[in-house]
Computed example of a mutant assay.
Amino acid sequence: MNRAAPLLALAAGATLLQGCVVAAVPVAAGAAIARERFMQGDHDADKPLPKPPAGALTYLGPVDGKAATGMVMVPPGMQYLYGSGEAAAASLQAYRALDTYLMARASDRSIGHQVKSVVLAPGATLDAPKFADCGEKPLAVVFDIDETAVLNLGFEADQAKRGGEYDQQRWLRWEQTGGGKVAPVPGVLDAVEIARQAGVKVVFNSNRAVENAAATAAMLKQAGFGEVAYGDTLWLANAGEHGKDRRRWAISQQYCVIAQVGDQLGDFTDLFNATTPDVAGRRAMASGKNVEWLWGLGWFLLPNPIYGSALKGSFNEVFPNDKQWTDPADAAPSPVPAPVSTTTNGSVN
């Protein structure tokens, strides 16, 4: 039995509610308004694509996993992402939303309605977004790999045991030899199958090293994603390259990218990493009025409390001064003891 068949049936039903196939059924007001804004947006025609702005992402490795007793302790973020039912449910929820969205956009294309890319075009800003041109290009969905398509259980287990800083050379050795020690993120394989059955090309865009392309392709195949081809459905980083826009723009010259999936803001546009705003500023960038509607309507984010650009902020940055609270009990004066009366011989009455 096709394991994705029940999901396809659900997604197809939801498509009737979300897409353009049955015009008599209204779309939820918020989604409709957001989609209308998107459909009316400005899109650049195809043209040579410039290089993205320079700027490196910082990997903030997991905390030291060794307790004072010498026993290996699993850091809370790893417990959550790799071990909890809650993280599995969050991933399934994101991928179910993606399933429905892909079916809706594929249905739109099949009946001749215009479909738009969700890749920001060269020259776009977060305040004035414009998108890559689609034309009649084949539809595609672009996935990040690490902690989006696969969970790097082997690498993070080793990291938890050894603690200390992230080691790029050890990561490269992991890319080369760890292909059998990963697991697909819950929901992703069904989403990939639904995309392919809907005629949407599945593409991977990762900051894994291009010299490990063969090992990465083998890992994806072993994990259940099927065959991928470097330069077509698999895009990887050249030495010293940290952003993804150059690759996103190249993918957009071949495909109409109707959805992107990742676990870091940089999986959607390098503009999130082009500057170094404070914690509040970065949060505001992600929820700005001109891009906030993309979340769940073309951009799909999965949880990752283990590493990446999300793990920043001092106490006062994460908890602004005007939002900090003090328990009134902590500020109350200590009770004054009642006076003690005694008899003349010193005994207590």
Rank of each mutant, 00 (worst) to 15 (best):
V200C: 08
A5N: 10
A223F: 05
A106N: 05
P50V: 09
W235R: 09
L236P: 11
N349L: 15
G65Q: 03
D46S: 11
Q324A: 09
L102D: 02
A280H: 14
V25K: 01
A239Y: 12
Q79G: 12
L271T: 01
F225V: 11
A218T: 07
M39F: 00
G288Y: 12
W293N: 01
Y59A: 12
R37I: 01
R109N: 07
F319S: 06
V27M: 09
G298E: 01
G179K: 03
A11E: 03
F225R: 02
D158I: 08
L120V: 01
I111D: 10
S252Y: 05
G298R: 01
P62C: 05
A332D: 10
N304R: 11
G163A: 04
G231F: 14
T343I: 11
G180L: 09
L294E: 00
V192T: 06
A4H: 03
W325A: 14
C134K: 03
T233S: 15
A90G: 04
M219N: 14
V115Y: 00
V22Q: 07
T342K: 14
E241Y: 12
E36V: 01
A31R: 13
L57R: 09
A5L: 13
Y255C: 05
Y101F: 14
G346Q: 08
D232W: 07
G313I: 01
G179Q: 01
E175G: 10
D99R: 13
V27I: 13
A274D: 15
G61Y: 06
D190M: 11
L126W: 00
A259D: 02
C256F: 02
G187I: 00
L60P: 00
A28F: 15
V257W: 07
L8T: 08
R247Y: 08
K221F: 08
A128I: 00
D99M: 12
G224H: 13
V115Q: 02
A34E: 00
L301Q: 07
I145K: 01
P339Q: 13
V279P: 05
L120P: 00
G55W: 06
Y255D: 03
E292M: 14
G19V: 00
V261L: 02
A237N: 08
D64S: 11
E156I: 06
F204E: 02
A45Q: 06
D245Y: 10
W235N: 08
P320I: 10
Y59L: 15
F268P: 04
V74L: 11
T69I: 10
A332K: 15
A106Q: 00
Q324N: 09
V74E: 02
A12R: 07
L311M: 09
R196N: 05
M78I: 15
L234A: 07
T343A: 14
R3T: 15
G180H: 10
A29M: 13
A106D: 04
G163R: 04
D322S: 06
F131A: 02
A87C: 05
R105T: 03
V141G: 05
D322Y: 09
Q18L: 10
G231N: 13
A310D: 12
